[in-house]
């Protein structure tokens, strides 16, 4: 919990700095976060490679975990269905299109802006950023309440890069292969699923 609060604090500090333009234009650019991400993943890799027991941990993984992307998919769409019931003015297909960004906010918001206009596109952007934030900030609680697979499922398409470090820390290193596999499948499905719901 303390970890999540520190993360939240840094995030809010970042918003403040970005909003008030306190940093030089390039400092907050996507480039810098890309390098930070590369460094992060390098160290995630390092912690896996230097762990002598890791191969035995991988072997203990259950083949049933291959179904995790399907569970994420069905669970997300059910959630979007309930959201559509609450938000009367949005159609079920619209809510499902937003939800099927699975945290991949850049791509899904671009797609939805093109098919459905800027308003729904912005909703997709914010909604998928929020999903990533819920995963990053809430991962410890998600593990406690919903089991070790929960942060992976919540992370959606981001589980092979941005949310992988937090998954490593909360679910355990042995879940890294599942997480990468899950992220890859979800990532790949985003353009197809979003397009499908936009055309309904």
């Amino acid at each position: 919990m303390k970890g999540s609060l520190i993360i939240l604090l840094f995030f809010l500090l970042g918003i403040g700095c970005g909003y008030l333009n306190m940093l030089p234009a390039d400092a907050g650019g996507e480039d810098v976060s890309f390098y930070a991400l590369c460094a992060l993943l390098f160290f995630v890799g390092y912690s896996i490679g230097s762990d002598a027991d890791i191969i035995t941990k991988f072997r203990k993984l259950n083949p049933g975990l291959a179904f995790l992307p399907l569970m994420t998919f069905l669970g997300t769409l059910s959630g979007c269905f309930v959201a559509a019931l609450i938000l009367h003015h949005r159609s079920i297909a619209d809510c499902m299109a937003v939800g099927s960004g699975f945290g991949y906010y850049s791509l899904s918001s671009i797609f939805i802006t093109q098919y459905k206009g800027a308003e729904l596109g912005t909703i997709a952007l914010v909604s998928n950023v929020v999903r990533e934030l819920i995963t990053l900030l809430g991962a410890p609680l998600l593990v406690r309440w919903f089991g070790n697979l929960a942060p992976i499922s919540a992370g959606g398409a981001t589980t092979m890069d941005t949310t992988l470090p937090i998954i490593t820390q909360t679910s355990g290193k042995e879940f890294v292969p599942v997480s990468i596999y899950h992220g890859f499948v979800m990532d790949f499905s985003v353009p197809f699923v979003v397009t499908f719901f936009c055309q309904l």
């Binding site: 309930v82 809510c95 914010v126 999903r131």
Partner: peptide
């Protein structure tokens, strides 16, 4: 956006709990 994100995440973690 918050409502959709929260419910979508809740749905997926519930499904993950079942698995």
């Amino acid at each position: 956006a918050f409502i959709i994100a929260t419910l979508a995440t809740l749905g997926s973690v519930t499904a993950a709990k079942c698995l």
